[in-house]
């Protein structure tokens, strides 16, 4: 296991390098440059800024320099935000996206586990059917479609909630709801299946037989075991939520990392494009690693080092 983990961790390096290389080459192929404005810069000024940022050099040299800086922890400066360090720009976006994502994660775990447990305990009742219906429908409606429908209802019709922005609790309600519906549905599905599995275990019967109250049986004996498969789901769901959703952030005008990326593409803000891409790749790689490791911890039958 240890050897496998070390191998996987070391492998993140080359993957990041490859992703950086591909992104760097691709983004320099995007037509236009960072200084293209409605008002054209005088040729001499353009030459000067290009010289200052090394944009006059071949892409390979620029990439080499970028890697050298990166090795020293320097992500460069943002063109769009008047030379603010890219790290600062990213940190702003990440803070917002992570807050939104953690809220959505908390909601989806609470709702998902709650629904899953209730529908397993009250299976084949109206409650169960409602929960299963939610889990089925919710798992296939994308976040921004749901977000739009929420907007139409709560903003355009009822005027209860602001249409967007970030900062107040009211502004967080709809984005969190839109983001958490799908993972909540998914978690509810997994929890229900796993609870039904646990329900028929001998140890549950034993717990009941020795006269434990139902509450204790459910919480201490069933839930604890039923949540193991749910844990492995939370990894990727968490990574997905915390790294933000381009579309939901765009929809609700939330200054998160997804919006930062979309803006950086249209502004040809090379440093920020690289920074966000590497950040995303890193988070996803780590999340996948954690999930695979968790699987092995949860299910001792999975052995990774077995010859290949």
């Amino acid at each position: 296991m240890a050897a496998y983990l070390v191998r996987r961790i070391l492998w993140i390096g080359p993957v990041l390098f490859a992703v950086a290389l591909i992104t760097f080459v691709l983004m320099h192929q995007v037509p236009g440059g960072p200084w293209d404005r409605a008002k054209r810069l005088p040729p001499q000024a353009l030459e000067n800024v290009n010289l200052q940022y090394g944009l006059d050099q071949p892409v390979w040299e620029q990439f080499g320099r970028y890697l050298l800086d990166l090795a020293q922890g320097d992500l460069g400066a943002s063109f769009r935000s008047r030379n603010r360090p890219v790290a600062d720009v990213l940190a702003d976006g990440i803070r917002v996206s992570a807050t939104l994502g953690l809220l959505a994660l908390a909601v989806s775990v609470t709702v998902g586990v709650g629904l899953g447990v209730v529908s397993a305990l009250r299976r084949n009742t109206v409650l169960d059917y409602a929960a299963v219906a939610f889990a089925t429908v919710g798992a296939s409606v994308p976040s921004f479609i749901l977000g739009m429908l929420l907007l139409v209802l709560f903003t355009a019709r009822l005027h209860w909630l602001p249409s967007g922005g970030w900062g107040s609790p009211q502004q967080a309600v709809m984005p969190v709801a839109a983001l958490s519906a799908l993972p909540a549905a998914y978690i509810a599905r997994v929890t229900r299946a796993s609870m039904l599995d646990v329900l028929q275990q001998e140890y549950v019967r034993t717990a009941r037989a020795k006269g434990l109250r139902e509450r204790a049986v459910v919480l201490r004996h069933m839930l604890r075991n039923a949540l193991i498969p749910v844990l492995t789901v939370i990894g990727p769901v968490g990574a997905m939520l915390v790294t933000g959703s381009f579309v939901v952030e765009h929809l609700f005008a939330i200054p998160g990392i997804g919006r930062t990326f979309v803006n950086s593409i249209s502004a040809r803000d090379y440093g920020v494009i690289m920074g966000t891409t590497l950040f995303y790749t890193f988070v996803v790689a780590v999340a996948n690693l954690v999930v695979d490791a968790l699987y092995a911890v949860v299910d001792p039958r999975i052995r990774y080092e077995a010859h290949g």
């Binding site: 591909i22 691709l26 891409t277 790749t281």
Partner: peptide
């Protein structure tokens, strides 16, 4: 592995 690690929507947007 590399293609899998590349964030999907980022790649699509770039292309």
């Amino acid at each position: 592995d590399v293609a899998y690690a590349f964030p999907d929507l980022l790649m699509i947007i770039l292309l």
